[in-house]
């Protein structure tokens, strides 16, 4: 599924937080949204995913602006994912339950994705009692097993260790190779370089540079992007 944002404008209490003229996300690619704190990355993700509405402008999903008709084809992992007060396994199955999958189908789907993180030993623990990194893995698996056409991930690896981050990146790459569109917000430049096909740099609610990852990383045009890439550190 392709997404197109047309004249997207978002304000909170009269204050502009995001202004996107035109932005497209094509099927089967990983897009990394980068920018400093408060640059509007999460707002862009929330408005693109339909969790929040733009104050002006619209989002088209394969040309369709009715978010409710495509809702079940979109999955989102929030920056601080909320896990239900039940086992990790039930949390992973939650999206499948909402989609009325049979118990056997759910077990099969979960089994397909568990090898990415090997978290069998925590599956029956209460998700609320897991560590931050474990919760992030459960939340990412919960998002992945739904196999939606579009997946939005807001800093999914922020609380993961290095090994888990690499595993999460493998999962994200595999999702995109399955013709799914993945849009990931990250502060990690190296992560963007490893997994993204396209990058979008935001500053003060505006896109300052976007395009193919290799092109932007090799020949940045905007001064801020140049500075960030030159420093070569995490934003």
């Amino acid at each position: 599924m392709n997404i197109e944002i047309v004249n997207g404008y978002k304000e909170y209490n009269g204050k502009k937080v995001l202004e996107v003229g035109k932005l497209s996300f094509k099927e089967g690619f990983v897009y990394a949204v980068l920018g400093l704190n408060g640059s509007g990355k999460t707002t862009l993700l929330q408005c693109s995913s339909g969790l929040e509405a733009f104050s002006q402008g619209e989002v088209l999903y394969d040309g369709n602006s009715d978010i409710n008709s495509v809702r079940k084809n979109i999955s989102i992992m929030a920056q601080k994912p909320y896990l239900f007060n039940t086992s990790a396994l039930d949390n992973i199955k939650a999206g499948l339950k909402f989609r009325k999958y049979s118990e056997q189908s759910m077990e099969e789907k979960v089994a397909d994705y568990l090898p990415y993180f090997q978290i069998e030993e925590i599956l029956h623990k209460n998700a609320k009692k897991l560590s931050g990194g474990e919760q992030a893995k459960v939340a990412l698996l919960r998002t992945a097993v739904m196999e939606t056409d579009i997946t939005f991930l807001d800093e999914p690896t922020a609380s993961m260790d290095i090994e888990s981050t690499i595993r999460a990146e493998m999962l994200i790459k595999d999702m995109a190779s399955d013709k799914r569109t993945v849009i990931i917000v990250t502060h990690d430049m190296y992560q963007a370089e490893r997994i993204a096909d396209y990058v979008i740099f935001l500053d003060k609610g505006k896109i300052i540079e976007s395009g193919e990852m290799k092109k932007v990383f090799n020949c940045p045009e905007h001064n801020l992007v140049k500075q960030i890439l030159k420093r070569g550190v995490e934003l």
Binding site: K72, S75, F84, F98, M146
Partner: peptide, 13 residues
Amino acid sequence: KEIEKTCISLGAG
């Protein structure tokens, strides 16, 4: 609101 957003993001009605 957080729970509501989570449910919506998981495709709940």
